[in-house]
């Protein structure tokens, strides 16, 4: 019960963080900070893929409804959710995920987070800007947008994890 409540709270937090704060941050050069793929990363490892896809569909559409993007965020997030199991297998630690209680930075360590979160965010941002521009002759602008937004989103995702997720007690 407590765990479900936690996920719901996270869900609402990511909507409001994106809509009320990050949509209004303008850094120039087409930079746009998006942190909600972190929600997909933080969901439990053994989660049903259909539940995962449905949740990301709902989160994406909720953000879309409040930033007038008509399904852009949802589309990018569904791609991320679909590729999450593949990426997780790709970056699996030596002992697999059986002993893992959560996939945050304290449990998994910096190097796993760097690879997994980096990949998830890269796919998300690239897909998002690809759909948004939808023009092949703007490919350089697409790469510029992705490469400028990615580090900013990544740093904020890391900071959020360090600030708001409690370190588990050493056993």
């Amino acid at each position: 019960m407590n765990r479900i409540f936690r996920q719901v709270a996270l869900f609402i937090f990511f909507i409001f963080a994106q809509v009320l704060v990050l949509n209004n941050v303008e850094l120039g050069g087409g930079t746009q900070i998006m942190i909600y793929p972190l929600f997909v990363l933080l969901l439990p490892v053994g989660i049903n893929i259909f539940l995962l896809l449905s949740l990301s569909f709902l989160l994406g559409l909720s953000i879309d409804a409040m930033s007038n993007t008509y399904g852009l965020h949802a589309s990018a997030l569904i791609v991320v959710a679909f590729l999450r199991p593949i990426i997780f297998r790709f970056t699996a630690p030596r002992d697999g995920y059986e002993q893992v209680s959560a996939t945050n930075i304290h449990v998994m360590g910096i190097s796993w987070t760097l690879r997994t979160l980096g990949l998830l965010l890269l796919i998300h941002h690239f897909w998002f800007f690809l759909l948004e521009l939808f023009k092949l002759d703007e490919i350089l602008y697409l790469i510029q947008k992705t490469m400028l937004s990615l580090p900013m989103s990544f740093v904020i995702c890391l900071l959020l994890q360090y600030l708001f997720i409690k370190k588990p007690k050493a056993s």
Binding site: I49, F50, L53, S54, F57, G60, L61, T69, Y70, G71, L72, A74, S75, I78, V79, F82, L131
Partner: peptide
């Protein structure tokens, strides 16, 4: 089934967009 479900959701979203 996973790919089909993914394609369904993606289809809904893209047609909205």
């Amino acid at each position: 089934r996973v790919i089909l479900f993914f394609a369904l959701l993606q289809g809904i979203v893209l047609s909205i967009y």
